[in-house]
Amino acid sequence: MEDLWSNLFWFLAGTVILLIVSLLHVAYLTYAERKIIARMQQRLGPNRVGPRGLLQPIADMLKLLTKEDIIPAQVDKPVFYIAPFISLVCAGTGIALVPLWENFVISNINVGLLFILALSSLSAYGVILSGWASNSRYAFLGGLRASAQVISYEIAMSLALLSVVLMAGSLNLGDIVRAQINSPFKVYLIPQLIGFFVFIISAVAECNRTPFDLPEAETELVAGYFVEYSGMRFALFYLAEYFGMLVMSALAVTCFLGGWAGPFEVPYVPFFWFVVKVYALLFFYIWIRATLPRYRYDQLMDLGWKVLIPLGLINLFLTALIKLIF
């Protein structure tokens, strides 16, 4: 009995801490994005709120919380209310399955990878439903684009991850990391170079980031699926996007870059290497946003179906072959 209570306590404490830490990360990710892009574009970026604008995300959050929640008259209200929550929950839950270091993972389930894939597929529902419920043509087009995009890139991503599963022989994320540490190269990045490439591109597309930000293409569809949202509901979509980036980066680190393992152990900071790798990937996301133009809808589909999925299939086949031989 004693054991159960203390287990529950630690579980809850861990969950709360992780939630707070990841929410802070998401908030400061927006700040980092604005600062880094500003630097790349020879601007200053936010610098008014707090020293060097460090309190900007908090000010933004306060502003969005206190803003009026406008609900257009013609919308499908229940769906309109619920859509942002679907998006956020599906994007954010994945972080619970990722092992941050050797012994720390909130939910250690054996089908972890499958669960994350399922969640990211579900998050498409948030986008589609919001696009449909808004009763706006821009939102509708954005929702259609998003669903097509998420479905087609989901396949490529799964194929890339399947090769990892083949190599590790497990769907459990912790086991995958352990298998990587015991593998000859220490990371799966080198044997799975094609897989990593496919995964990263699909991940960018999954998060609807430039150059695949078609569902919210600002210059075409104004804001895409969340054009009718305002206040906190708008902020939830925003959070979901950045949460998605965080989860995808964490997943990439876990599956390809060796998770918490690093060239040497850093004392007292067991998550050091994990965090460093995640930050590097997030920087990569921001970097391409500042550099690349946007794809057109049909070109995006071409890339997904004619390049990434065949590449993923070939990679899967090769991995299976190598696995069979050795």
Binding site: I37, T210, A290, T291
Partner: peptide
């Protein structure tokens, strides 16, 4: 077309 940086340059 989506290239943000050229704008500010």
């Amino acid at each position: 077309i989506g290239a943000m940086t050229v704008f500010l340059y």
